[in-house]
Amino acid sequence: MQHRTMWTFVSLIILAAAACGGGSDAPAESAMPAAAAPPAFDPATAGSVMGMITLEGTPPAAETIRMNSDPACAELASDTETEYYVVGGSGGLGNVFVYVKEGLEGRSFPVPDEPAMIDQVGCRYTPHVFGMRVGQTLKIRNSDATLHNIHATPAANPEFNMGQPIQGMEFDRTFEAAEVMVPFKCDVHGWMNAYVGVLDHPYFAVTGDDGNFDISELPPGDYVVEAWHEELGTQMQNVTVGEGGTAEVSFTFTVG
């Protein structure tokens, strides 16, 4: 009886399997730095940053999403085109997240009681790009008569993945750290994705189809404003907001 041979054979296989394991992901840091006392800010002196995001070049044509992997989606969906590039008549680029990246350090702002909202409607996320505050409640709703999972894949906040198998089901979540952007996806329906910018201040906006944005009620000061697009990346500009003034800033993304 060649036990040694048999055990050698088995041991080699088991050892090979064991060798491939090891390690673990470190938990994402969620601690938020303590805010210093905010400098005095007279609301009467507030200004704003306005502008337009434009797209140069011809973006890839929107593609029709095949939703037949879920008959309910194929029946429910009214919008089946990809929305990577939303371009208005004057070249304005929609779904761009614009926010104050630098210049507000040391200030703190009250977190709104009203929740932010993301819904699953017609097997798409609504809205596709949006902003919310650190500590603000995010209400996640499934308005579809089919099941979804909502899977957030942040870098600075804890990842989560929740199933919503029943129409009308709602969950609440919060993010404890600022992060631009937190992606959402549905692993059931691979075409569903959305992005949320999580900030510790209220100075952000998302461009509409015309590419325009308006960030108002901003304390006077020098800022770095960043524009983020899911396919085209980010651009930054310095801007100075005077007392009661409006600073105009425009970004041009290029494609092709």
Binding site: S69, D70, P71, L147, G163, G190
Partner: peptide
């Protein structure tokens, strides 16, 4: 399927066939 060993809260063998969609 975000949960385990259940499937969307169902005992895995009781998960409805109608839910076998997409991923």
């Amino acid at each position: 399927v975000p949960d385990w060993p259940n499937t969307y809260g169902y005992f895995m063998f009781a998960f409805p066939l109608s839910g076998m969609v997409g991923g």
